[in-house]
C-alpha cells in the first residue's frame, strides 16, 4: 500500500497547507496538525510497510520473526508525534493568548509588530466578536 500512502501523504500536505493559508489562526493550527500527520506518513511509508508482523521479540525467542516490520520509522514517528504534540499545544495556546492581547485571530489584522507602511491600506473591519 506504499503508493497509496504516498498519495495520501501528499493529499494531507495539500489540505494542511491550504488551511495554513487561511486568515483565521485556528484554521492554521488545524492545518499544522494535518501536515504533522502527513510528515509522519512520509516517514512511515519511506520505511516500507509490513502487515501483521510487529517488531516484537516473542517470549522465549531472541530474534523477532522473519519479515518483521521496520521498527526504526515507528520510533522516529513516535518521537515526531510527541514533539508535534508539544508544538501544537504551544501554537494553540499562543492563538488564544494572541487573541486576548490583539483582540483578533485574523492573521491579516495582526500588524502590531510590523505596522502598515505609509499609505498602505490594511484589512478593514472590526476585531472579531467573541461568540456568545
Amino acid at each position: 500500500m506504499e503508493p497509496l500512502l504516498a498519495i495520501m501523504a501528499g493529499f494531507l500536505f495539500a489540505s494542511g497547507l491550504y488551511l495554513m493559508l487561511r486568515r483565521n489562526y485556528v484554521r492554521v493550527v488545524i492545518g499544522l496538525i494535518l501536515i504533522s500527520n502527513a510528515a509522519n506518513l512520509v516517514i512511515f511509508t519511506m520505511g516500507r510497510l509490513a502487515r501483521g508482523n510487529p517488531p516484537l521479540v516473542a517470549t522465549g525467542e531472541t530474534m523477532p520473526a522473519e519479515g518483521f516490520a521496520n521498527p526504526l520509522p515507528q520510533a522516529l514517528i513516535l518521537t515526531a508525534i510527541v514533539i508535534g504534540f508539544g508544538l501544537l499545544a504551544f501554537a494553540l495556546v499562543l492563538a488564544y493568548r494572541a487573541y486576548r492581547e490583539l483582540g483578533t485571530v485574523d492573521v491579516d489584522a495582526m500588524r502590531v509588530a510590523e505596522p502598515p507602511y505609509p499609505g498602505e491600506k490594511t484589512v478593514s473591519g472590526t476585531p472579531d466578536q467573541e461568540e456568545a
Partner: peptide, 22 residues
C-alpha cells in the same frame, strides 16, 4: 508586539520543521 511576532515566527518555522522532517 510579541504575540504578533510570535505568531509569524512560530508558523513559518513550523512549516520549515515539517519540510525538514519530510
Amino acid at each position: 508586539e510579541q504575540m504578533d511576532g510570535a505568531i509569524k515566527y512560530v508558523t513559518i518555522n513550523l512549516v520549515s520543521s515539517l519540510v525538514f522532517l519530510s
